[in-house]
Every structure is written in structure tokens, then in C-alpha cells.
Nucleic acid binder design. Structure first.
Lengths: 355, 355
DNA sequence: CTGAAAGCGCTAACAG
DNA sequence: CTGTTAGCGCTTTCAG
């Protein structure tokens, strides 16, 4: 390994001078000496040792990312956003993937084991002197346990702690659902079925609020049975679509794309064409969504932006510009595709009212 | 920040003794002193500074991961595999995502820009004293440029350099295609259409070899036009399916799931039911594949295993157990689902021969 | 303009 | 059993 010292020997100057020259301190050496030093360094492929530099400067230019599970579909894009922002600011990343899914078979909700794992990860990251930490959830929910004593900026992506502790960046489920619902209403739909996730889910609750708000705004009543609860899986979409179809809904808003895929199947079986006899909206913008026939309309969560924003928050806290503890809600993008059609407005009066 | 020194002061011993005790060196201090030191350390939440430790020991227990693009579907699972192996061996990870897709709009093939980017990344990782590097490609191909002077173990995941330079871990495209083809043959299919990716693609070539080998083994001839070339995108699957259907194939082997989704659409339009009138096989096991109706049969590449294996190779090279430069091919998993049906064997003789 | 000295936090060798 | 010393590679006064 070629060090600053060796270069100092070869150029017959002190290590300090080499350091100064290599760091571009003007006037650290005579023009000629500086040139010589730089040349020798280049020829020997000198490479500063960041460990030493960081140790001395008490600054690592590194932040930590803790992912609950990197293999869950939304996580990589969030990490990508964090990474992008870090790169822009000349920061590096240390990654730890807790692999919660694989480890606990998705059967974990704030278990002690999880807490322990998190604490160990946090300790290890502190030891590596990260200047901040982003915690990336695999689905949006309140995280009950708090990291014990982190002394660096900490921010949650795609999940959140109880109010006022640490900042978090989420997306606006409610507004997205409101907008989708209103879009369906504007297309003439009145009998809109909703396939939610589990009732306890944050996503379910927020989206349902948005749905109800839109329906209320347009003075449309939902009949009993038109809002049903699945488990996010395809099969439940298939099962629940049956009852909605029986109720003669003209549109279905499925709270994720996976369950929407079940609706396609059920509709086909019952002789209904999506995009012609039945409008369908999903959520997530999974890569499945464009492949269906007809293409599934859906909502794209701003994952990259969430990551980017988290990194921005961390970096600005590091620079002590200011510190926030707020929850931030980023807007989703709605993709209208061929699974949605315009239907006759049954009651022009109510439609007029809604305008 | 509480350091070893502070603890030494408080317990009235030397820093060395604290270090020894905290590192479990037996007999470093009297029972009582040791206990006291440990207690004080715990109470003050002492946390060793890994920078200092690594600097001293000339060992970071860290490897670097360079991803071409973390948001491409196969990459996270590979990273997950690397991470898993590292965790087992008490190693940490520094991640750099080159974001090739977003940066160059997928219009890059070993451009100088890419090379520069890689070199910068490599330098930065060396500076951080990583002990090894895994380079994760976003699709399998030969990487033309080589990292200039890496002095740590280096291994390619899901792509490879020219023979004999660095080791790489891939999956066995050829065998997978062979197995799929043979499976279709065993189901009675004789007229099998193939939708390849671009002809220059490594995947296309390897899978085609497997297909041809299986067909040859069973003495089945492919008619002209039954092997066609798409561009991996859905639309090309749709387009090409038309000509294959015209040729009255009873099965289609699409070299990825995305193009297979186009086949679903085309088949439906032409009144053919997948899994009943037309067998269909994809490749990749994308999450789309289970959602189609009927579910798409497909090939699952061993992504997690690729990552894990890469890390194993790196770590064993670090421990100097041995060094390899070979390409390693891991087996895929074939998922047979309802998109495949048994058809009448037109010529029992040739089938008997094939047994 | 240049360099000596000190020290970041930790460990390892060796002396008492 | 315990402490002293030296030093990992780098930066940063500060004195010449």
C-alpha cells in the first residue's frame, strides 16, 4: 500500500506537505515541487486511506440504510432514491438488510426479535460512524419500537414512528384514493366496489378515507357490501370480485394490483370484459399492471422521491441547517389505462351537482 | 463520544487494559477490575470506533457491492444473497448503485462514460478499504472493460468478463431451456414456437442452444419461422405470437415473461386459450407470472444463490483459501403451472424413440 | 513556502 | 496481572 509517507520520502518533503498539495491547498509548495508530488502520487497510484482520513477528521461522509426487506418490491426504488441523493452530495452508503420476510416468514409485527436485530444493526452502524440513518419499511405502518439512543439523524422511509419522535417520509394514500375515486365518478361510475386490504392496515384506512371523501363530495351513497376486505393477495381479489359483480358495480377499485389481477380472472369467468363492462383500478403500479389485457389503471407511489427526500432530510440535519420531526406526504402519480371506460351517467342530476 | 481513554481514566487503568478486557482477553485484569471496566463501559454506552479499529488492524470486514442498476428486477435478490452470506460471516457492505438505466436510458453498452463511472466507484471503494468487490450486472453479458488494477478479490454476478480474468457466477440458461423444451416434448408437443430475445443476447444464444439440443435429442425438426426474435418487451411477444399461431404451433416458449404476457393477449384475440389450445412457457418468474390466467409456467433463475455464491467466493479469497477465475453456472428452478397442457402425441413412434 | 509535532481511537508487543 | 510505548495513515496547527 502506497501511503502519503512514501511519497514524502520519494519527493523529499514532509508528509504534511504531500497532504497539503494533494488536497489542493494553494501555496503549500512551490509550483515545481507540487507538480512532482502530484506526478509521483499518480504514478504510484496513490489512493488516500479513507479510514485514516475519516478518523482524523471525525467525519465519514457515510450514511447507513437499514432495509426491512430489500426483496419486497418497493424497497429497491427507495434505496435508489437515497443513493441518488447521496451521490449528488458526495456521500456513501452502508447497507444492512434485515431480511424480515425471509427470516420470519412475514409473520412478524414488532416482535422482540426484530427489535433486537434492529438494535444490533444500529450499534454496528454507529460503530462505523455513519452520520445518519434511513430506515426503510417494507410496508407503511407505525413502527412501535424506537431505536434506543441513536445520536445521529434518523429518518423513516415508508413507515413512521409515533408522532413527533423522528421524521418520516410517506406518500399520500388518501389523496391518491380520492383522486382515483373522483376520476371514476367523472367517468360516470356510481356503483363503485372497493377491495381493500386488511382493515387494520394503514394503507387500507387512508385510502378508504380518500374514497369516502370523494363519494361524499359527489353525494354518492355506497351500498352495504360494496366495500370488502381482502388480504392483498391475488386470490382474495378473485374471491371478492364475485360478490361485487353480483351487486352490479360498474367499477372496482382494488387497493393493490395483485388483487386486481384476481378481478380480471373473475370478471372473465363471469363473462364481463374489463374496460368495457367493468372499470378497474389498482394500486402500486407493479410491473404486472401494464401487461394485463386491457392494461390496468393504477397508482404509482413516488418511491424514488421518498428515498431522495429521506436522504435530503438526513443530509440537511447533518449540516445542521434545521431539524424536522414531521411526517411528510409525497403525491402519487395516477396512471389511467384501458381498464377504465366511460359509462352512462344514470342520474344526470347528481352528476351535475358534482361538477 | 465516549472512548476507551475515558473509560481508562474513570477506572484508573490504562487504555490498553480497557481494550484487552473489552475484547475478552482472559487474564487482562483482575476479576474485579474487569467487572468494573465492563460496567462503566456499559453505563456510558461505550461503542468502539470501527474506523480506529480497522485502521489499526488493517482490516475492515467490509466488502463493496457495485450494482449496474438496483431497480432492475433481478438485482435486489442478488444483493440480498450477498448480504445474507456477509452477515453469516460478520462482514458489512458498502453499496454503490451506478444507476445505468436511469442515467443512460438503457442506451449504453460499455460506453466510455460507463467505464469512467466504474473506475471512480472502484477508486472510492478501494479508498474505503473494502476487502473485496462484487459487481452485479443488470443482465447477463460479457463486460468488455476491466476494472483497472483492483487489488482486492473481485467477482462478477450475473455477467462476466472475458475468460480467465475474474470469477463470475451465472445461471445455467442452456440447461433450463433444455429442460423446459423436454418438458413440453414430454407433454406431447412437437410444434414448439420460440420467441427469443435479440439474437446478440447471451441469454438468447444460450437458451436457444438448450432448446435445439432438446429438439435434436428427440429428433424433432423445427420448421422455418418457428424461432423468432423479439426485443424482450411485451409488444414484441404480442406481435410475434401471431406468426407462430399461424404456423399452428401447439406450444410457445417465450424467453421472458414479459413477452409471454403479449402471447396471452394475442392468443385471446385469435380465440385460443392458453393452457388448453396453446401451451406457454416464460422465463424469469416475474411476479406477473402467477397472476396470469391461467398461471404462466416459467423458469426461476437462482438469484439469491448467485449473490450468496459470489460472497462465498470473495470471502474465501479473502481468507486465502484458494482463488478461482472460473465461471460458475447455478441451476434454475422450473415452475410448471396451468399454462401448459398435455396434447396428443401425433407420432407415437418418434415419442417412443425419444424415451 | 515548508516541516515538526501532535493526535484522531484503537491495538499489539513487550517490559515491569 | 498491568502499563508503557509505539504506531495504523492522515490532517492540522504553528513555528521556522
Amino acid at each position: 500500500m502506497v501511503t502519503i509517507k512514501k511519497i514524502a520520502q520519494l519527493t523529499k518533503v514532509s508528509a504534511a506537505t504531500v497532504s497539503n498539495v494533494l488536497n489542493g491547498k494553494s501555496g503549500a509548495a512551490s509550483e515545481a515541487k507540487a507538480r512532482e508530488i502530484i506526478d509521483v502520487a499518480r504514478n504510484l497510484h496513490y489512493m488516500p486511506n479513507m479510514l485514516a482520513k475519516s478518523l482524523k477528521q471525525q467525519k465519514t461522509n457515510t450514511i447507513g440504510i437499514i432495509t426491512e426487506d430489500l426483496t419486497v418490491f418497493n424497497t429497491p426504488e427507495i434505496v435508489d432514491g437515497i443513493d441518488a441523493c447521496c451521490e449528488e452530495n458526495d456521500y456513501g452508503i452502508i447497507l444492512t438488510n434485515m431480511r424480515l420476510f425471509k427470516r420470519y416468514n412475514n409473520d412478524f409485527t414488532d416482535t422482540p426479535k426484530h427489535h433486537e436485530l434492529l438494535d444490533a444493526t444500529l450499534r454496528s452502524m454507529s460503530a462505523k460512524q455513519v452520520e445518519g440513518i434511513v430506515y426503510v419499511g417494507y410496508h407503511c405502518r407505525e413502527i412501535a419500537y424506537l431505536p434506543s439512543r441513536v445520536q445521529v439523524p434518523f429518518v423513516y422511509a415508508y413507515c413512521y414512528p409515533r408522532e413527533g419522535i423522528y421524521p418520516s417520509v410517506l406518500y399520500d394514500d388518501e389523496k391518491a384514493a380520492f383522486d382515483v375515486t373522483e376520476l371514476l365518478i367523472q367517468k360516470g361510475h356510481r356503483k363503485i366496489g372497493v377491495i381493500c386490504g386488511p382493515a387494520i392496515s394503514y394503507h387500507t384506512q387512508a385510502r378508504l378515507r380518500g374514497f369516502n371523501r370523494a363519494m361524499a363530495k359527489h353525494r354518492i351513497r355506497t351500498k352495504p357490501g360494496m366495500v370488502v376486505y381482502g388480504d392483498w393477495e391475488r386470490q382474495s381479489g378473485y374471491n371478492l370480485a364475485g360478490s361485487l359483480i353480483d351487486l352490479k358495480v360498474s367499477a372496482v377499485f382494488s387497493f393493490n394490483d395483485l388483487m386486481a389481477s384476481g378481478v380480471y380472472e373473475r370478471a372473465a369467468e363471469q363473462g364481463l370484459q374489463i374496460g368495457k363492462d367493468l372499470s378497474l383500478f389498482g394500486f402500486d403500479n407493479r410491473d404486472i399492471s401494464q401487461g394485463y389485457v386491457p392494461a390496468l389503471s393504477t397508482v404509482e407511489p413516488p418511491l424514488h422521491e421518498i428515498g431522495h427526500k429521506c436522504a435530503e432530510i438526513i443530509l440537511s440535519q447533518i449540516k445542521r441547517r434545521r431539524t424536522t420531526k414531521k411526517r411528510l406526504f409525497l403525491p402519487c402519480v395516477i396512471h389511467e389505462r384501458n381498464s377504465v371506460f366511460v359509462t352512462q351517467v344514470k342520474s344526470p342530476v347528481s352528476f351535475a351537482l358534482s361538477k
